[in-house]
Amino acid sequence: MIANFIDGPLWYFSQAVFAIGIIWKILSLIVGKKKSDLSVARGSSVPGAIRTIFSRFIPDKGMASHIKLQIIAGYLFHLGLFALLFFAAPHVRFLDENFLGFSWITLPHWGFIVAAQVAFLGLLLLFLHRLMHQVTRLISSTGDYLASIITFIVMLTGCLALLEEFSELRLLHRFSVEIFLIYFPFSSLMHAFTFVPSRAFTGAWFGRRGIKS
């Protein structure tokens, strides 16, 4: 009964919310009103946009010494998550069978586990730092905590279901993924899609003003 609901209606609903939400958010970014910049252009905006998209991967020199943990743990988490999301054999198989119809190279089992451990390490340290540091605690909203916790639960349930033998554990993982998908477009998790346009926008603006960033 619950199993059918999780595998059936809720699964399709969460996918629909995820897809429509993302399209709506990105469209609203493109279509939305922008203040036109009336100043005289001092430089070209396109190279600035492209440069900033990549330059923001490198932490700012002045800040780096203060936010070592955030940099290290942040990279660990995001790289680990990326590896286990798109290169773990069960995930690739799932995407192949349900959506794409093709597959690609996958990590060996140990690689999958190491990626998960790296991602867990980063996420836990970042979450605890957010909670423990006076400043980040003040500037964090409920949404920030919720996004971290939901991501953690998705990863944890996936980790519980590693043997891929018990349907209860598979359902638990899928249910947490559904919650994650529904919550995704309405939260800061959207940065997975918006970080490129956001950086491009800033970069273009800076480029036009002749600022190197």
Partner: peptide
Amino acid sequence: FAFVASASKESHNVFGPLVIV
């Protein structure tokens, strides 16, 4: 208990090395 134990075993193995960190 079987799936609880399976979940325990798998996650115990994954989280173990993090204890070293």
